[in-house]
Amino acid sequence: MSETTLDQVLSQRREARQDIVNVDEPAVKLVIFALGDQYFAFHGERIREILAQADVFFVPGSPASLEGVINVRGDIESVIRPHEMLHLPESTASRTSSILLGHGGGMSSGIRVDRMVDVVDLPQSSIQPPPATLPEHMRALVLGVLKFQEQPVAVLDLDKMFSDYARGLG
């Protein structure tokens, strides 16, 4: 008696799972974060790790946009402040800020963000092409825009940001 019930339950479950798999729209993973009061996102495959707590060490002679270096399990990684590149006002350090470890454009580095918002899987179709009203300096860096929690989010091109940054340092 009980066995039958178990089988039934299992088969129901299986069907239920199949239903979910059948919804077949290409999804993208996005890491959404805030700089000041604006929302931005990177593609998930570009972000290796999110560090909530990390001691950043000052490196003399580096530009202001380079906050310092961190020790990630024995590897030395830099921490970049993206504010200047995006023409945003410098924000002061706060307890909510995190570091995203990203790789792209031939380099890898931490990126300081003011606040982590969420890591989500969204259908590809929810991302719109960047609007023509975007300011000049943003146009090269933005891959697309979407709405998240009623807020506009700009999806940033990490490859481009990093390669621009590395060139700026050279």
Partner: peptide, 22 residues
């Protein structure tokens, strides 16, 4: 230092101290 920081002239590398500082 990470590759992209090696052009900074002032710093030739990083050491770790006992306090795990860089």
């Amino acid at each position: 230092l990470p590759e992209h920081m090696r052009r900074l002239p002032l710093v030739s590398g990083v050491v770790t101290t006992g306090k795990n500082e860089l």
